[in-house]
């Protein structure tokens, strides 16, 4: 089973996770820039974070045979802090980088005027830089937030077919599907979706334009949830081709809209004896 995790925050994860992900079939992933748990207070700490997503993290992933790409943006939560909004002015120089395959995560958190501005501005940037957009739908007041997101996309220059609406569930999948955008589902241990509910959605909705991710981060989450969905799909009677479509071909098609996917990472070499390259022996 080959797996592309289209949403996972690897900066929060250990090398054991990379190893386990590779063993489960993960060969590619996208790490969206997002909130780090602790609010940032200046644009400079965003830039160091973006640089890590374009430097150290892909290097780490490659040690484990996994192709790493990222999406960059000012996230909805921190778009509300005027100390952070200058990030928007510097984003263009990052959006030309080879490793950037979308603008994201953008979207709504609390649906404030500042979030309106950040979302509209960054959808416009996506259109200008010929990138798709990865849009987070809010945890609170999700359906209303989704409808408002779809309206803002419709008013933008970005085609809805170049938008991924993420963190969907049973109550939002129909509205999202009708918009023409791609459909993302995050599978979590307790919150968001679980693998059996995901299988039910796939049964009723089908596999078209559906992406499944672990969204694993620094909270309670599981980087192997993509594999568990694949296994649950097979157990429920879906074919291997269905699984490949959801866990590989759909994310490749969506992020491939950027023209920047590089999926040919060599298989991992054995680590330097007794001296992990990953830590430089330090």
């Amino acid at each position: 089973m080959r797996i592309f995790d289209p949403h996972i925050h690897m900066t929060s994860r250990t090398t054991d996770d990379y190893q386990a992900m590779y063993a489960s079939g993960v060969r590619a992933l996208v790490e969206p820039s997002f909130w780090l748990g602790q609010p940032r207070t200046s644009p400079a700490s965003f830039f160091d974070y973006f640089d890590a997503l374009l430097g150290w993290e892909p290097f780490r992933a490659a040690q484990y045979g996994i192709a790493h790409h990222c999406t960059l943006a000012l996230n909805p939560k921190e778009a509300n802090d005027p100390r952070c909004t200058p990030v928007l002015e510097e984003l263009p120089r990052y959006l030309v980088k080879d490793g950037v395959v979308a603008v994201g995560e953008i979207g709504y958190d609390s649906m404030t005027p500042a979030e309106d501005v950040a979302l509209a501005t960054q959808l416009q940037l996506a259109a200008e830089y010929a990138l798709p957009a990865m849009v987070h739908t809010p945890h609170r007041d999700k359906l209303a937030g989704l409808r408002r997101t779809i309206d803002v996309v419709a008013e933008s220059n970005l085609d809805p077919e170049h938008v991924l609406l993420d963190h969907l569930n049973e109550t939002t999948v129909k509205v999202a599907a009708d918009s023409g955008s791609w459909l993302g589902f995050s599978i979590y241990p307790d919150t968001k979706m679980d693998e059996d509910r995901m299988v039910s959605v796939l049964r009723s909705h089908g596999t078209d334009r559906v992406l499944v991710n672990s969204a694993a981060d620094w909270g309670k989450s599981d980087p192997l949830k993509t594999r568990k969905v694949g296994d649950a799909m097979l157990a429920a009677g879906f074919s291997e081709d269905d699984v490949d479509k959801v866990l590989w071909r759909n994310p490749v098609a969506f992020y491939g809209l950027s023209g920047r996917l590089q999926l040919d990472v060599p298989a991992p070499e054995a680590l330097h004896e007794g001296n992990s390259i990953l830590r430089g022996g330090e």
């Binding site: 030309v96 980088k97 080879d98």
Partner: peptide, 13 residues
């Protein structure tokens, strides 16, 4: 300089 950044995807890594 924009092309400097984009060289990998146009010419191969």
């Amino acid at each position: 300089q924009l092309r400097f950044a984009a060289a990998g995807r146009h010419c191969g890594q």
